[in-house]
Amino acid sequence: MAIEVRIPTILRSYTGGAKVVEGAGDTLNELLADLDGKYAGLRGRLITDEGALHRFVNIYVNDEDVRFLGSLDAKLSDGDTVTILPAVAGGALGFAAAAALLQR
């Protein structure tokens, strides 16, 4: 069963520069395990030590964010496309919090 996986620039060092790779699995969890067998370390960039989806990435199955599909339990079928994108987020919050700490 082949699932097309689109890899963002920042993670292509794990795939030998490949933008699109193929993997297999009935769920996202299985797919990531399969990919980690071929591209060691990739899974660790997507999953936290606690086993949850990392806050710094967005993963989509076809047109849907997996957070709305059961996260790592999201079901996959042959021919699905999984897209990984770096979440784009940030802001002054950390700075303000750090500044507050420094002023104590």
Partner: peptide, 8 residues
């Protein structure tokens, strides 16, 4: 926060 998230 910006630095942690910067993914491009």
């Amino acid at each position: 926060t910006d630095i942690s998230f910067a993914g491009e």
